[in-house]
Simulated scan of single mutants.
Amino acid sequence: MILIISDRRDIHAYFVVVELEKLGIEYGFLNGADFPTSMTMSQSIGEGADLCTFSLEDGSVAKSSEVHAVWYRKPGLPRLHPETGPHEREFAFGESREGLRGLYDALRHAYWISPLDNINKASNKLRQLRTAARLGFNVPRTVYTNDPTTARAFISNIAGGVIYKPVGDGALFERAGRWDPGTVVGEIYASLLDQSTIEAGISRFSACPALFQEYIEKDVELRVTVVGRSVFAAELDSQSHQDASVDWRRGDVLAIEHRVHELPIEVRQKCVSLVEELDLEFGAIDMIKCKDGRYVFLEINPNGQYLWIEDMTGLKISRAIAEQLQRGHEEAIRRGRACQVPC
């Protein structure tokens, strides 16, 4: 069985489900937010036993040993019972979260797109830049610092403008605690800085460090989605929209013209190598194609959105994910059978 771990509100999961059904592959759906209120789970360990069972969205019960491939998409946080008291919520959330981590560990024998620990490690943008540079990508000159002297020296050496961008996901949340999924009250995008903004930011370094990066003139922006060794490249004509010219996420992305982009073979190979080097099976890479023809790496989202790209370009990304899960599923079954053969 293929297990899809995601929030049912994420429409990406259903597009892949359609493709799995076309392939005739059994799948189950699990959302971590259902635990412990409406999802049951048991893990029995000791005296030679290691059994993990859990309920799926359709009410059926599955064993971890029955799962041969996992697509870890976008599950919600554990949703606690409304009668849980205010002093108990932090404890109950932690107990539920650790139980889910134990479930994922019980599924470590399966093929994953992508393993959760690998997604978390690959999400670090500084690691991404280092890895991309080591693989031969062009990367913007970048500094992350809370030292005013370092920041000013870096900025003084950049002739074409400097941008600020968050190292994290850029969302500003209002939360009641770790157990609260929170409400997004604002978002921080990549921003081209003027001198007064630079000085204001540097004056607050003791409160929060910053990442500065040279601004690079663009011909088009690229979203390159890698699934296994398959590469799907789309170009976004963000420079035709003033509000999207620095960061296309600021504008109405559906108003930006999208086209299929033919990457040079060496850039395609580097994109695949980057995903492999970060121990991922999927990656959504943001790049720039410069006016002089150079390709510049910006960042990679190890679990990024892609459905709007598929809708606007016709690139068959959901199909590729389903087929990659199928291959991983079949390989996991073969490995399991091989382990049962005496050496």
Rank of each mutant, 00 (worst) to 15 (best):
M1D: 14
L3E: 02
H12W: 04
V17Y: 02
E19C: 13
F29V: 12
F35K: 01
G46P: 01
E47W: 04
A49F: 07
L51H: 12
S55Q: 14
L56A: 11
L56H: 01
D58P: 01
V61M: 10
H68V: 09
H68N: 08
V70S: 01
R79M: 13
L80N: 08
L80T: 09
A92N: 07
S96E: 01
D105Q: 13
H109E: 11
S114E: 01
L116C: 12
K121M: 04
A122H: 01
S123K: 12
L126E: 08
R127T: 10
R127K: 10
Q128N: 01
L129S: 05
R134I: 06
G136Y: 03
G136V: 05
N138E: 14
T142D: 00
A151M: 07
A153F: 02
I155P: 00
A159Y: 09
A159F: 06
Y164G: 07
F173N: 15
E174W: 12
V185H: 06
S191Q: 15
I198M: 13
S203L: 09
S203Q: 07
A210S: 13
I216V: 15
I216C: 06
V220K: 05
L222K: 03
V231R: 01
A233S: 11
E235Q: 08
L236I: 14
A244W: 00
R249T: 06
R249M: 12
R250A: 06
R250Q: 13
G251I: 00
E266A: 13
E266S: 07
Q269I: 04
K270M: 11
A284V: 08
A284D: 02
K289H: 14
F297R: 02
F297N: 00
L307R: 08
T313E: 03
L315G: 02
A320I: 15
Q326E: 14
R327G: 08
E331P: 08
C339N: 08
Q340T: 04
